[in-house]
Design a binder for these strands. Structure first.
Lengths: 241, 241
DNA sequence: GCAATAGTGTCTTTAAGACACTATCAT
DNA sequence: ATGATAGTGTCTTAAAGACACTATTGC
């Protein structure tokens, strides 16, 4: 029997070969009727010049977890902290990166377009790409596949939660929430169903303000602080998919 | 501009410090009215002698992905391939393993108790522990937390799919499926609701055989080969949780 | 026949879908 | 007043809950 203390005295982490570990995030937003994903241009090899997901190596001095890594990289690129960030999955294998056996931890995030516009507009190596136009370019590594997984997750969750509010500004109208939901799902949804869900969820409160979007003014809502995501027990659009 | 070929010529993976990477699996089964999880005794430090999840290091020569690592370790312990295996998540951080910054990729698996009984019964360093009795011992690292996450996933998915069939033998009765579902959820479910779901799912076919479990013989069902998991658009037991 | 489990029929309940209706604003 | 968007009322529908009913077996 060896004690942990004895064992650690002689342990050297570098003795074991380990995979190349990176953390990448799929950050979605909504802009001009389109669901968009944040891509950055790779500044260094491999695949220098190609566009891919924001991410990079774990900083073992600074990062408390891969969540911290994801957040650090996203904040570097956008200048702000996304209001929604959840673990997506991992991809791994010997062939996906030319440097060798690699493992990428992926995160899924949402943000309002306006909130990070200052940060994005000022740099040339980051931009929003509508998901419909992703096929037009070859993305780095297997990032297209990771985005596809994130998209499936976003669409699935939108059917049983009000997740798309995290793509809207802090104050939003029910019309904006409906539009966001419809863009994500790619189908019209019943306004009435959404309104029922907003009420039943208990996640929101009226700000008291209204917004004139064209005709009648619409009430503004905001997320109640500290209330977490409500999950519904049925799916919206259950038939059509 | 550097080409990838030039770059790789001078690239040495060992120059970058990287976290300690492991793969652990939460394998559930049902036995004697209880949901059980497979634990193994740690043969070497750190935490030698404590019980924890089956898993270990990636074999970069052999493993095509962390799924392969999980499968290899599970097969070593049980002697068989689990019929259900899905990615669960990752846990990471500087403090969870005394050897340093570590990252564990977790997998979630189900199997029929009888199928791996020969493999488990013959060794002393692996055993099934009912989830209700997990608190009785201190598990290795943060494995208790990982199991808790897996349990939440199992329960959630059981509400909108027929996942617990993967804890049953290849041929099973509707009564067994009901019992499995009730053990997982910890609540009685309507037999009729389950039967409707089995029919609607299209996942199963009758074997033609029957099983005498006590009174009237029950029909036996099996999974149709190549049909994947049906997801329902509503949850079972929507109120009670 | 009786007890026990297997399986069916069918009514109720819940939350979504459909859609007509009223309300409020700019012009 | 009109048109446009905001928001409500309410009927229909789909699938789960409840539970009584029949069916089949061992004794």
């Amino acid at each position: 029997m060896t004690t942990d203390a004895d064992y650690l005295k002689h342990y050297d982490a570098s003795c074991f070969p380990s995979p190349l570990v990176t953390v990448d995030s799929v950050l979605f937003t909504l802009h001009q009727q389109s669901l968009c994903v944040l891509l950055v241009e790779r500044a260094s090899p491999p695949q220098q010049g190609r566009w891919g997901l924001p991410g990079g190596f774990i900083d073992m001095q600074q990062d408390e977890s891969t969540r911290a890594t994801a957040l650090r990289k996203l904040t570097e690129k956008t200048g702000v902290v996304p209001p929604w960030l959840e673990p997506l999955g991992t991809v791994s294998g010997p062939e996906r990166d030319p440097r060798g056996w690699s493992l990428t931890v992926t995160w899924f995030a949402l943000i309002a377009w306006a909130d990070c516009q200052p940060g994005i507009a000022s740099v040339s190596d980051a931009r929003w790409v509508p998901v419909a136009r992703l096929e037009e370019q070859q993305l780095a590594f297997d990032h297209a596949e990771i985005i596809h997984t994130a998209l499936a997750r976003l669409r699935q969750k939108t059917m049983y939660s009000l997740l798309p509010v995290y793509c809207l500004p802090e104050s939003f109208t029910l019309g904006q929430l409906q539009e966001a939901t419809e863009i994500v799902l790619g189908k019209p949804v019943q306004r009435k169903s959404l309104i029922r869900r907003v009420e039943a969820s208990g996640m929101f409160e009226e700000t008291g303000e209204s917004l004139a979007t064209g005709a009648r003014k619409a009430r503004l809502w905001r997320r109640r602080p500290g209330v977490d995501m409500h999950l519904f027990t049925r799916n919206l659009l259950a038939d059509e998919l």
